[in-house]
Design a protein around this nucleic acid. Structure first.
Length: 279
DNA sequence: CTGTGTTCCTGTTCGC
DNA sequence: TGCGAACAGGAACACA
């Protein structure tokens, strides 16, 4: 689930338990996720206060009082939950959880335990020394944050200028815009009325100036992400909140459109779209 | 440098 | 019901 809106939602949900709280103890249940945990992971976290919890693209960033930053990525199946921390943290403490995919437990001075669960283990955790955050390999090449003023039609067009790859692949490229994933890339292209297979270069003139489609797509990206965040924050779940994703063969929801949703594979991943109203 | 394909891992769903 | 295949929301890496 974790694309930008889900990560933002997680950030807001776990912030009350973590921010301005001290990490009393850390249970580390295995040596690695997708990559090994950094050296002295538990030692460097224990006793630290989390000063702030922010998000960049799909990364969560916990700023520690030591100046280090705990960088976390949810991968494909990563999730956090907050539980009351009945168990006293420390040696011999009974784990607060029994799920075999609970890999990390943060015992906070707020009285809550924040549990990281990730069946597929595509998640990542790293500790970044003070001052080294911008240069971190996971962050340094990221494009603009889609909901910031840095991202607009001009930025999108510039990034896609001359690109031979498809629009869908371009939206998944975190250097073009940071935080979209497979679901919201499909959704944004649908809202913008653009066919996912068209070359990304159509967004810009040869000189790099935005064409009309770039304005539509930049606005659609912001719209789709803002909608998803507000819906999640309201905890307002519905059967399928999406316009095209996972709606194969269902009628297109756009007004006065007679199309039905198709699926195709691009770059080994499913793209959902309406062949009638997306040109 | 650019674009494409593979790979990491486990759980769920689908067709026979 | 059982079983294998296909597929799943990410991103680093190898290669042409």
């Amino acid at each position: 689930m974790p694309e930008l809106p889900e990560v933002e939602s997680v950030r807001r949900r776990i912030s009350p338990a973590m921010v301005r709280a001290r990490i009393k103890a850390v249970d580390l249940r295995r040596p690695d996720l997708r990559r090994p945990f950094p050296r002295h992971f538990v030692k460097r976290l224990t006793g630290e206060t989390i000063v702030a919890l922010t998000r960049r693209a799909k990364y969560l960033l916990a700023s520690l009082s030591s100046g280090e930053t705990l960088l976390m990525h949810l991968g494909m199946s990563g999730w956090f939950r907050v539980v009351r921390d009945r168990a006293t943290a420390g040696v011999g403490a009974r784990p607060a959880t029994i799920d075999p995919h609970d890999h990390v437990v943060f015992h906070m001075s707020s009285g809550k335990a924040v549990v990281f669960n990730d069946p597929r283990r595509f998640g990542v955790m790293d500790l970044v020394p003070a001052g080294a955050l911008q240069e971190h390999p996971s962050l340094s090449r990221l494009g603009p944050e889609p909901l910031s003023d840095d991202f607009d039609a001009a930025a999108l067009a510039q990034a896609c200028r001359g690109k031979k790859t498809s629009l869908k692949a371009a939206l998944l490229d975190q250097r073009v815009v940071a935080g979209l994933g497979n679901i919201y890339a499909s959704e944004a292209l649908h809202v913008a009325g653009l066919s996912p297979g068209r070359p990304a270069s159509i967004l810009a003139t040869p000189a790099g100036a935005p064409r009309e489609a770039a304005y539509r797509l930049a606005a659609a990206i912001k719209h789709v992400l803002e909608n998803a965040i507000s819906r999640r924050s309201e905890d307002n779940y519905r059967a399928s909140p999406f316009l095209v994703y996972d709606r194969l063969d269902e009628p297109c929801l756009k007004k006065r459109c007679s199309g039905s949703i198709r699926r195709r594979t691009q770059g080994g991943r499913s793209t959902f779209y309406c062949p009638v109203c997306q040109q």
